[in-house]
Design a protein around this nucleic acid. Structure first.
Length: 195
DNA sequence: AGCACGATTAACT
DNA sequence: GTTAATCGTGCTC
């Protein structure tokens, strides 16, 4: 499968968020083994105006990566214990990203099982922090370029989901964010179960 | 320097 | 349904 080139991410963030459904997020472990899943849920975070986006505070050390070129990883730490993975979108200078919220596990199942020990397979990667744990994504990848041939974290084309299988709705977890940003339908989710 | 809180999760009642 | 865990970040003093 072909790695997604930078042009895929240098587009309007809502298009990227929709089109990432069905692509494969791959982490090549230090020992060369692959751990990967099919993306089935994403959210868009778009610009300083978006009061749900971290870039609402402007350019800070934390958000600088979102202002950089597309196709890089924006990985941040929250609640004192969780890492969340995003892909930077749009053009350099405009802060936006797509949060990957859920995957179907497809490669490296034993590695995921070990990292998510004691939990059923269904719960290995069904949340944005869970999938980072399962794939071994953490702050080391913050700012990493996902589009170079030697990248250890990258996306591959895999399958496409028809619009009928995609549910669009409000983003999750923005409890104190003002309207319209709290309810704006920038979440994309595949509602099929894994074949 | 201090503080409130978060793009969450797991373990409760 | 509720809540503790746990700390970096951004804002106020």
């Amino acid at each position: 499968m072909a790695r997604l080139p930078r042009e895929c991410f240098a587009r309007p963030t809502l298009e990227v968020a929709r089109d990432l459904l069905g692509t494969r997020l791959v982490h090549r472990e230090p020992d060369g083994r692959r751990v990967a899943g099919i993306i089935v849920e994403t959210e868009a975070y778009i610009g300083e105006e978006d009061q749900g986006c971290h870039a609402r505070a402007g350019r800070t050390p934390r958000t600088a990566v979102m202002y950089g070129p597309p196709g890089h990883a924006y990985v941040y730490f929250t609640y004192g214990m969780h890492w969340l993975f995003n892909v930077v979108t749009e053009g350099e200078g405009f802060p936006a990203a797509v949060l990957v919220r859920a995957l179907w596990p497809v490669e490296g199942l034993e590695i995921m099982a070990a990292r998510r020990r004691g939990r059923p397979r269904r719960e290995w990667t069904d949340g944005p922090a869970k999938l980072c744990r399962a794939l071994g994504i953490d702050g080391r990848y913050h700012g990493a370029d996902l589009c170079t041939p030697d990248a250890d974290l990258f996306l591959e084309s895999d399958r496409t989901f028809p619009d009928e299988s995609v549910t669009i709705g409000p983003r999750v977890g923005l409890n104190t964010v003002p309207e319209p940003w709290k309810s704006i339908p920038w979440r994309f989710r595949v509602h099929l179960t894994q074949p």
